[in-house]
Computed example of a mutant assay.
Amino acid sequence: MSDSKVVFLDVDGTITTYENVIPESAKRAIRTARANGHKVLMCTGRSKAENPPELTEIGFDGMVGGNGSYVEVDDQVIMHVHIDAGQCRHIVDWCHERGLEFYLESNNGLFASERFREAARPVLQLYMGRKGVENADQLETDDVMHGMVYDGELYRDDVNKVSFVLSSYQDYLDAIEEFSDMKVGTWGGAGELALFGDVATKDIDKAVAVHKAVEALGTDMADTIAMGDAKVDIPMFEACATSVCMGSGGEEAKAAADFVTTDVDKDGLWNAFSHLGLV
């Protein structure tokens, strides 16, 4: 075990608020920790194209993207597991047949289906409203989703994950059956309240990716810290030596973490970094 730590940070709800605002104290925490010799990496469900300049300009030592399908350390790609072209075509055709709007998450952009912008607007307004965002009912799809590409090619070989708007919970249950060779999940709410389904490659999660990143850095898992706010972060919590959940996080994530810091918009990141002796 060394004095230098490797910190894996979820993005949405951890570095940024649910309105995509990055608290100044979060930027300061990351920059100060790196100046003190610690490594800080994003570990997010986002694909690279979803990161706005304000986020990347903070400065990171790497990125785990697509909930573990992509690992980059010091500008070198360590691992990138795509949905293959055949699987992508299968998912796109299935969504089209069911009349479900969707987007393909790639490091080159978020490629939306024909009517995604209109279909997703009320769903994303509900999603942001549940997170307590003010005037959520005024938001447009592009206010919530960074990096959307419309009229792009949908049969692709560079896709990390596909998300689709659920018309009902049955869409998710049918997707599990249809894509039995893949990992099918939901987001935007628990159980029947889920708003989106998603499809990704099997056997990929944030824990697998964290191990790959640590190996590439030549450090030890005993020196790792994970911070997040959601159920999808639990594998990362379990993989790392120390885990922290945001005060604004979900109950399952809080229960799985070693300790809970304050809310993301109440200096949660800075307070956690301070508690851990990183700043």
Rank of each mutant, 00 (worst) to 15 (best):
M1I: 13
M1R: 13
S2T: 14
S4W: 11
K5C: 02
F8Y: 09
L9Y: 03
D12P: 07
G13V: 04
G13M: 07
T14R: 02
I15R: 05
N20C: 14
I22T: 08
P23N: 04
E24T: 15
A26Y: 07
A26F: 09
K27R: 14
R28W: 12
I30C: 06
I30D: 02
T32M: 12
A33M: 10
R34C: 10
A35Q: 14
A35M: 13
K39F: 14
L41C: 06
C43Y: 07
R46D: 04
R46G: 02
P53L: 06
E54D: 15
E57Q: 14
F60P: 04
G62R: 03
V64N: 01
G66H: 05
N67K: 05
V71D: 06
V77Q: 10
H80Q: 14
A85I: 15
G86Q: 15
C88L: 08
V92M: 02
D93G: 06
W94F: 02
E97W: 03
R98V: 06
G99N: 05
L100H: 01
E101I: 01
Y103G: 00
N107L: 10
N108F: 13
F116W: 03
F116Y: 07
A120C: 04
R121V: 05
P122I: 02
V123A: 07
L124S: 05
L124C: 01
Q125L: 08
M128G: 01
A136I: 08
L139G: 07
L139M: 00
D142Q: 13
H146P: 04
V149H: 01
V149D: 05
Y150D: 09
Y150M: 07
E153I: 11
Y155Q: 09
R156K: 03
D157N: 10
N160R: 08
S163T: 13
V165T: 04
V165A: 00
L166D: 05
L166S: 05
Q170C: 09
D171T: 05
D171Q: 03
Y172A: 00
L173W: 02
D174A: 07
I176W: 09
I176V: 13
E177L: 11
M182H: 04
W187C: 12
W187L: 08
G188N: 01
G191R: 10
E192Y: 11
A194Q: 00
A194H: 03
F196I: 01
D198G: 03
V199R: 02
I204D: 02
A207L: 05
V208F: 12
V210H: 06
V210A: 08
H211S: 15
K212W: 13
A213N: 02
A213D: 08
M221G: 00
A226Q: 00
D229W: 06
D229F: 04
A230D: 14
A230W: 10
K231D: 15
D233A: 01
F237A: 07
V244L: 09
G250H: 11
E251F: 10
A253I: 06
A253W: 01
K254N: 10
F259R: 09
V260A: 05
V260Q: 03
L269F: 08
N271F: 11
N271Y: 10
N271P: 10
A272M: 06
